[in-house]
Every structure is written in structure tokens, then in C-alpha cells.
């Protein structure tokens, strides 16, 4: 019996969500009395990979090859399913991301494994294998049994508070038969905002709505985000109007976020927007209209003009 954790590397480092998956995996392994292995695909130093030990891993398998790139989802999923097979892994865990969703889906398909995503707690394993997952875009939860022999679960962000130790993991190279990996596609162009905090990974998010009145007025919001080290986001009308890029759109049909802190500036709080942010730990709402529905979902509220309030918040953050 073994637990396998699929992780992702960005710029040579584990993504924060992957460290959360490692920590979660170590808790699951302890609970069911199994060993845990971490699979890391891509380029990173052994020192960085050994850091998986800080979060409960003892062993990291590292696969790195020329044609093993993130756009080659079929190759990634093949490495994952083959590794799971060779380790006889019965539980495969990842953090949710757009790449992980695709890789986990294909690997689960190959292994005929039941797959449950958006898991929000440790599994219940005393009688069967049950996980609690978020459904209806955060409006409800479902306790779900996985009945297949191999079980795949993808966890949401911030499921468990991370605990760090000084332990290091051993790192082993995983030899990959790259000849068997088919190239399913060719990348023509990658357009990526650089130097900004990744929205799905962010612990702090500052978001703007139509109350910002136009793309030229975004500076005070960007200033607060910069002072906090936060990612920036927006509501659907704002991205529909092209005031902000589409990948910043948070809501039912956009990115779903689960940061520690979500600050909404000039967003009224339509139910479709709330669906994308209701997993946030703490929500702050700044709106001119005291009747804005978002205040009902908020922990802290300020009724006032965003252009008056934002600079005050930025100044207070800088004074910390």
C-alpha cells in the first residue's frame, strides 16, 4: 500500500499548492499506515526537491526530460500512471490546478480510478474511503465514497495549515522512456503576465469591480496589491469590458480562489461572483453602497469611496 503525490514545479521550485499536497499526503499516509512517494516532473535542483521533506515526504522521484514539458499533457499523465502502477499506489493525490486537473484526469482514466476533486478535508478511512468535497462552486459540500481500488483525489487550496520541519527527503532520478512519449501538440506562443503573483496560488487577493469606473483608475488598487504582495483580480463585467485581462476574472465562470484574504473594491457581490470567492478565509468589502449584497458575505466592511479608502489602506500596510 502506498500513497503517491503528484506535484508541480514553477521556476525550479515546488508550487505552494504542491507543498500543501505533500503535507496532506503525509497525513493521509500516516492515517492509513502507508508509505508516501512524491513525484516531481520538470526541472529543479536536488536541494529544492529535498525540501519536500520539510512537509512530511521521505522520498521524491524526479522525472526530467527534454520532451517532458507542461504542454505535453499526455506525456505527464503517462509518467504519473506508470509511476502509480510500478509503486502499486492505491491513493494518488494532487493540488488542483489547470495542468493537474488534466494530468490527474488522464492518469485516473488509464488506471480506471475513481477521481474526486475540490477535496476540503482529510479523508475518513475507518469505514471505506470517504472525502468531503466542495460542490456547486462552493455553495455546498458532498461526502463522497470512492469505491475503486485505486483512488485519485485533488485537494483545494488551504485545506490544512502547513507545518514545516527541518527534515529532508531523498531524491531519486526516475528514468523515463522518452521515446514512448508522443508529442500531441506544438506551442506557438505563450502570453504571460510577468512578475505578478499567480492568482490561483495567491494567499492575498485584491479585486476590483465596476465601481472602479474605468481601467485608467486601477492604480490605487495595484498600489495596495503591491504593498501587500497580493495578486490582483476582477469581476466578470470588468473583464468583459476589457478593463482587465480575462485570466484575472474571478467568479462562477472564471478563476475560483481560496486565499486567506480577499479584498473586494467596488464589487456589488452578485451570486456568480460570490461563487468564485466564497472559499476565502477572510473577505473585506469596500463599497459606496451600504446595501451592496457583498456585505452579507463579508467579514469586514467599509462603506465609502474606493478612491478615498484604498490609499489609506496602502499607507497603513506600508506603516506595518
Amino acid at each position: 500500500m502506498s500513497v503517491l503525490v503528484y506535484t508541480e514545479l514553477a521556476d525550479g521550485q515546488f508550487k505552494k499548492s504542491s507543498l500543501e499536497a505533500i503535507f496532506y499526503g503525509s497525513k493521509v499516509a500516516a492515517q492509513v499506515g502507508a508509505s508516501m512517494t512524491v513525484l516531481a516532473i520538470g526541472s529543479a535542483s536536488d536541494d529544492e526537491l529535498a525540501k519536500a521533506g520539510n512537509f512530511g515526504a521521505t522520498k521524491v522521484l524526479h522525472a526530467n526530460a527534454q520532451n517532458l514539458t507542461s504542454e505535453n499533457i499526455m506525456a505527464y499523465s503517462k509518467v504519473l500512471s506508470e509511476t502509480a502502477k510500478s509503486l502499486s499506489a492505491k491513493i494518488v493525490i494532487s493540488a488542483k490546478s489547470s495542468l493537474a486537473d488534466a494530468v490527474m484526469a488522464r492518469a485516473a482514466g488509464a488506471l480506471k480510478a475513481g477521481l474526486v476533486g475540490n477535496v476540503v478535508e482529510l479523508p475518513e478511512t475507518s469505514n471505506g474511503f470517504k472525502v468531503k468535497r466542495s460542490i456547486f462552486t462552493g455553495k455546498a459540500f458532498a461526502e463522497t465514497s470512492i469505491n475503486s481500488e485505486v483512488k485519485f483525489i485533488a485537494i483545494k487550496k488551504n485545506v490544512l495549515p502547513l507545518e514545516e520541519s527541518a527534515n529532508a527527503a531523498t531524491v531519486e532520478k526516475l528514468s523515463v522512456d522518452t521515446g514512448s512519449l508522443t508529442e500531441s501538440s506544438k506551442v506557438l506562443e505563450t502570453i504571460k503576465a510577468s512578475g505578478t503573483v499567480s492568482l490561483p496560488e495567491a494567499d492575498l487577493v485584491v479585486s476590483g469591480g465596476r465601481g472602479m469606473k474605468g481601467p485608467e483608475n486601477w492604480q490605487p488598487l495595484l498600489d495596495l496589491a503591491e504593498a501587500l504582495g497580493a495578486a490582483t483580480a476582477c469581476s466578470k463585467p470588468v473583464s468583459d469590458l476589457d478593463w482587465r485581462p480575462h485570466h484575472e476574472h474571478v467568479g462562477q465562470t472564471g478563476v475560483k480562489v481560496a486565499p486567506n484574504l480577499y479584498i473586494a473594491c467596488g464589487i456589488s457581490g452578485a451570486i456568480q461572483h460570490l461563487a468564485g470567492v466564497n472559499s476565502s478565509k477572510v473577505i473585506v468589502v469596500i463599497n459606496k453602497d451600504p446595501e451592496a449584497p457583498f456585505f452579507k458575505a463579508a467579514d469586514y466592511g467599509i462603506v465609502g469611496d474606493v478612491f478615498d479608502v484604498l490609499p489609506k489602506l496602502t499607507a497603513a500596510v506600508k506603516a506595518l
Binding site: G114, K130, F141, E143, T144, S145, N278, F295, V309
Partner: peptide
């Protein structure tokens, strides 16, 4: 391969603490 045993609604949100502008 999976089945839902039970549903649950999230705990209601506590009151929003208001701060003056």
C-alpha cells in the same frame, strides 16, 4: 466508481464588522 453519501451546506457567515471610511 464514486457515490455521494451525504450533502452539507456551509456554516452561515457571522456578522460583518463595519469600519468607518
Amino acid at each position: 466508481l464514486t457515490n455521494i453519501d451525504k450533502f452539507e451546506l456551509p456554516a452561515p457567515k457571522g456578522a460583518c464588522k463595519m469600519i468607518s471610511a
